[in-house]
Nucleic acid binder design. Sequence first.
DNA 1: TGAATAGTGTCTATCAGACACTATGGC
DNA 2: GCCATAGTGTCTGATAGACACTATTCA
Lengths: 242, 242
Amino acid sequence: MVEDSWSPPEVLVTVDLVILTLREARLQVLLVERGVEPYRGARALPGGFLNNAGEDILDAAHRELREEADLDGAQLHLEQLGTYGAPSRDPRGRVISVAYLAIAPGLPEPVAGTDAAEAGWVPVEDLLTGWSKLAFDHRQILTDGVERARSKLEHSALATAFCDGTFTIAELQQVYEAVWGVELDPRNFYRKIQAVPGFVEPAGTDRRTTGGRPARLFRAGPRTVLHPPLVRPGRTTSEGER
Amino acid sequence: MVEDSWSPPEVLVTVDLVILTLREARLQVLLVERGVEPYRGARALPGGFLNNAGEDILDAAHRELREEADLDGAQLHLEQLGTYGAPSRDPRGRVISVAYLAIAPGLPEPVAGTDAAEAGWVPVEDLLTGWSKLAFDHRQILTDGVERARSKLEHSALATAFCDGTFTIAELQQVYEAVWGVELDPRNFYRKIQAVPGFVEPAGTDRRTTGGRPARLFRAGPRTVLHPPLVRPGRTTSEGER
DNA sequence: TGAATAGTGTCTATCAGACACTATGGC
DNA sequence: GCCATAGTGTCTGATAGACACTATTCA
């Protein structure tokens, strides 16, 4: 299959990040404003080229996380999302992008003092329901990242990655409600969470929030795969979804 | 972040395929024997370098499917599995591999007359329970591919991709049993399948197999997402899985 | 007729959702 | 006390698994 005179083409590789968090009870993503061509001035996912030929792709994702969002990848959930390689996706030439999905607990303030010209949290809903433009194929990557998160909430303990070290069941519920875009019954949710062995475990004392009775605190348990799973409500009957 | 004199490193890209099928009621994968260094003589997943800088990655997967397995990707389920980019994974230098998962209906004979020196179906169980070696990080890629298939059987209509155009419910059950490595009750399975709207639809006449009453034929329905899902039995109680 | 598989009916323990109710804080 | 939220109890309709039973072919 390989002729003697043939040699494989070399391509450039970027690593792009879909960093999701919960702010003001809404699912938000970190976007930067591009300072250089192409797509100068447009909003894009944070990311950049591999540093050198010896850099591991996952390491590059950690580096971008630090450089562009001032986040420590070791503390975050970080998983590969997919690789986007349409020949026309980058006007500079053949550039393929390995996308990663990162989940961060709610950061109180927008990221500042970072490398990118402008970086800020944007509600995902505003981006995906409207027709806002993102650079390159980043809208598709974002869509895939959000769908990955929605799906993984059902079968994995991903939701705890949106929370701080300790959290209340109500806070965990907010994660599910924001990511899935549904409302859940707090009482049933409470029991459902605790019916999954190893999902969350108690963490001692109490804390109060708006008004009511103080809530117990929990931390993430050892289990990353949920049995039984938490299934998304709605669509029980037949709909034509692709 | 990019100095004026700096330019991003160029890397080589291969596309590797995890092609799964069902033969003799067992989950099998197509492997080739490498004819060139590195890993000459070792078994590997079929695959190869991008053809030229303008070739789409998915197109390259289709091309490899045709060249190395004589299969038509348009007829098969084909999805991206992930990208493997450890700097040390290929002794030739910086080569990253985009892996694809393909699902094929049971082919009666081993593939012959193809490009690769040797190509043949190997039971997945033999590879993953034993300590058989595969070239590069292909054992990891295979593991990931099998786990992807196992998981997607629960929530998608992937199982029909293992079957011919028309199939019986018993044949579909064999898919689940082989991929999951469990035994299922035929009567409950039968009703469970038909309880999922759009999963399978009737296809006319009958056919008989070993002995018993002839079974109805079905074809894949329009639905690719299963509601309700088919959940894997077993592991209901807490186990420490990763 | 008997063996073998296809397909249906039914029973029961369990579970998910609805929601009444109690507990515990701040005002 | 009143309000708000946390957490528990209970009821009910749906469901998953076990398995008896009927149907239809071949030998």
